[in-house]
Simulated scan of single mutants.
Amino acid sequence: MIIKVIYYSMYGHVHTMAEAIAQGAAEVEGAKVDLRRVPETLSKDILEKMGAVQAQDKMNEVPVCTVDELDEASAIIFGTPTRFGNMCGQMRQFLDATGKLWAAGALIGKVGSVFASTATQHGGQESTILSFHTTLLHHGMVIVGLPYSFQGQTRIDEVTGGSPYGATTIAGGEGQRMPSRNELDAARFQGRHVAELAARLG
């Protein structure tokens, strides 16, 4: 059973969440977890101006995903930062290249799940995941979120991401906040939950 964790991360926040997602999925017996990033669409000059080169260099060891890899997965867990309440352009471009898979019905019945990052508490965490689900539904995937059995999403004693739609983190306006322990726990829970359901669906 292959679980793909496919993400885009500019400053490392989604990358950190993706690693936790992968850790959780790997806890399920029989799960082989592949961590992948989608291709970058910005030039190095632009990334330098955005202060993202150092973070990008740290992620270079993660292989870039190809569309053809998706067909072999039992479940795919996507991670994206938010851009105006929606997925980032890099992820959108990657998904827009999956038309051949759609035409073949290659992803029908596979488990799909999403996690995300925003700068602020109300910066589109839920809308990003929900709008992402539209693409997964067009592919016929079985959508899985973060159930309330992960009780950390109901905490009110600290600022935290996470909702029934998926694990999330709050990065701060300048990217100064990395995922908290609770947010990483949510990511691990989601990864494990997705892998368990994929195993049941067989």
Results as ranks from 00 to 15, higher is better:
Lys44Thr: 14
Gly79Met: 08
Ile76His: 08
Thr66Arg: 14
Asp71Tyr: 12
Gln93Ser: 09
Glu69Cys: 13
Met59His: 05
Pro39Gln: 08
Ala73Trp: 07
Thr80Gly: 05
Gly79Asp: 08
Cys65Ala: 15
Gln54Leu: 04
Thr80Asn: 04
Ala52Leu: 15
Glu48Ala: 14
Pro81Ile: 08
Met91Lys: 02
Ala55Trp: 11
Thr98Ser: 13
Gly99Met: 13
Asp34Arg: 14
Lys58Ser: 10
Gln54Gly: 03
Thr41Pro: 00
Ala55Asp: 07
Thr98Lys: 06
Leu42Arg: 12
Pro39Ile: 05
Gln93Met: 09
Lys100Met: 09
Asp57His: 01
Met50His: 06
Asp57Gly: 00
Val67Gly: 10
Glu72Cys: 03
Gly89Arg: 08
Val53Ser: 11
Ala75Arg: 10
Leu47Gly: 00
Thr82Asp: 05
Thr41Met: 13
Phe94Leu: 05
Asn60Ala: 15
Pro63Thr: 09
Ser43Asp: 11
Pro81Trp: 10
Phe78Cys: 02
Val64Tyr: 12
Thr66Val: 11
Cys65Trp: 04
Thr82Trp: 10
Gln56Met: 13
Asp34Phe: 12
Val62His: 03
Glu72Gln: 11
Leu35Pro: 03
Cys88Thr: 09
Pro63Tyr: 04
Leu42Asp: 08
Arg92Val: 06
Ile77Cys: 05
Cys88Met: 04
Asp68Pro: 06
Leu35Cys: 06
Ile76Met: 09
Ala75Thr: 06
